[in-house]
Design a protein around this nucleic acid. Structure first.
Lengths: 108, 108
DNA sequence: CTTGATTTGTTCCACATAGTGGAATATCAT
DNA sequence: ATGATATTCCACTATGTGGAACAAATCAAG
C-alpha cells in the first residue's frame, strides 16, 4: 500500500532524503525554508513527520545527548521503503505532468 | 495574495495549462490519468476546479453546444494571473527541493 | 412536434486526509 | 534554578475523494 503524499508531505520527505542522518526537526525545517523560500512553523514539520511515521513512510530514532550543548535529545528521521515508493510515485506524477512544460512554468 | 496549492490542485492547474482552450472536466481528468497513471473520479476534478475558481486561480466560460453530439454544454477553464503565480511558486518549490536529487528520486 | 431514450457533462453532499501555528511541555548543560 | 534546544498537544482550516443525483443537449420514433 503506497499512500498518496500531500504537497507538504512531499517536501518533508525530500528534506529527509537530502539530510540523511542529520534529518531532525530543526534541520528539516531549515532545509525546506531555504530551498523553497517559504516560512514554516516548526510544529507543522513535526505534525507531518508524525503522520508520515504512522503511515510507515519514515522511521525515527532518538539521538544521544551531545555534550557540547543543552537541550532535549534529537529525534532523527529516515526514509522507509514505503516512503520511497510514495516519493517515487509523487515524483513521477509531477515530472510526467510537467514534461515539456518546464520553460513555460519557469516563465510564469 | 498567492494561495499555496495542494498536491492535486497543482496537477489540475498544470493540466489546464497543457490543454489550453480545450480544458474542461473530461479532458482534464484524462490528461491527469494518462500522465500520472493514477485513477481519479471526475467529481474530484470538478471540486478542485471550483475551489480554484473561488480562489481566483482560474476562470471559466460555458461552451456552445456542438451540433455533432448530445450532452450538456462544456465548462471550459483557463489560468488566471493569480493561478500562474501560485503555480510558479509551487514549481519553484519542487524544483528547488529536488535540485541535484533527480537521479536518486527516479531510482527510488 | 412532442415524448422518451441516450449521451455527455456538471453539481451536491458527506466524509477522510493533510496543512498550520500557538502554547505547553520535556530534556539536557551549567 | 536558569537558559538552551527540541518535541508534543491541541484546535482548527483547507484539500482530497467518490457516490449519487441532476442538467442539457441530440436523436429517433409515433
Amino acid at each position: 500500500m503506497v499512500p498518496v503524499l500531500g504537497e507538504f508531505e512531499q517536501l518533508v520527505l525530500i528534506a529527509v532524503v537530502r539530510l540523511g542522518d542529520d534529518a531532525y526537526g530543526a534541520t528539516i525545517r531549515r532545509e525546506i525554508e531555504e530551498r523553497t523560500g517559504r516560512r514554516l512553523s516548526i510544529s507543522a514539520a513535526y505534525t507531518t513527520l508524525n503522520r508520515l511515521e504512522e503511515k510507515g513512510c519514515v522511521r525515527f530514532w532518538i539521538g544521544e545527548p551531545t555534550p557540547e550543548r543543552g537541550g532535549r535529545r534529537r529525534k532523527h528521521f529516515a526514509l522507509q521503503p514505503s516512503g520511497a515508493r510514495a516519493l517515487r510515485t509523487a515524483y513521477r506524477a509531477f515530472t510526467g505532468m510537467t514534461a515539456g512544460l518546464e520553460r513555460r512554468l519557469k516563465a510564469l
